[in-house]
């Protein structure tokens, strides 16, 4: 895998056509996140598997579902009892999958490249949580959803993965095919902010 040339094929952000509309919203800054390599890791949380993967990705995996930890160039988000989403802004997707998978395989786990499965938006500003709360039933108050928490839930009628970076800094992962809907929903909701 390591002998692949650097990709020169043009890459397009799934929300490129909505960039201007998102940036028009002044109350809450909504930025299109740059693409990252991402794998869906499935692994028995008991045993040595998580530590083995941690050694490869450069940081410990979160111990509880719905929480995340920082990796040197990305995030380790725990999505469920035996599932994590691991991202890296440095690695190439195929290398990221290969490396994590190799570490997991020895412990009965596996990693699948999902780099293009989701895209993400960063929402910054004092009213970022209020904006999300206009479309999301989850308790997003800072005390209930502090930095370090993440959650897979519904935004409008779309499944999303919400990540709390800080009180006024949140990130939203969404499947690429739903991204346009979610962006339109947020732009619409931001109308009244």
């Amino acid at each position: 895998m390591a002998d692949l040339p650097v990709p020169t094929l043009p890459w397009a952000h799934p929300l490129e056509s909505r960039r201007a509309r998102l940036e028009d919203v002044s109350a809450v800054r909504q930025e299109l996140s740059a693409p990252v390599a991402a794998v869906d890791l499935r692994l028995d949380p008991a045993g040595a598997g998580p530590a083995a993967v941690a050694a490869v990705v450069g940081g410990p995996l979160p111990e509880r579902p719905d929480t995340w930890t920082a990796l040197p160039a990305g995030l380790a988000l725990r999505l469920g009892p035996d599932e994590w989403l691991l991202t890296s802004s440095r690695a190439r997707p195929e290398d990221w999958e290969f490396g994590v998978d190799e570490a997991a395989l020895a412990h009965g786990g596996s990693a699948v490249d999902v780099s293009a499965q989701r895209t993400s938006l960063r929402l910054r500003g004092q009213r970022a949580r209020d904006l999300l709360a206009s479309c999301c039933a989850l308790d997003l108050r800072p005390a209930s959803f502090p930095r370090g928490r993440c959650a897979q839930t519904l935004l409008g009628q779309s499944a999303v993965l919400l990540v709390a970076h800080d009180t006024d800094d949140l990130q939203l992962f969404v499947r690429t095919s739903f991204a346009g809907y979610v962006a339109d929903l947020l732009v619409d909701a931001a109308h009244d902010f």
Partner: peptide, 12 residues
């Protein structure tokens, strides 16, 4: 011992 991952949106 099987894991399932949706990659519908990953692949075009």
């Amino acid at each position: 011992r099987v894991r399932l991952t949706s990659v519908t949106d990953h692949w075009s």
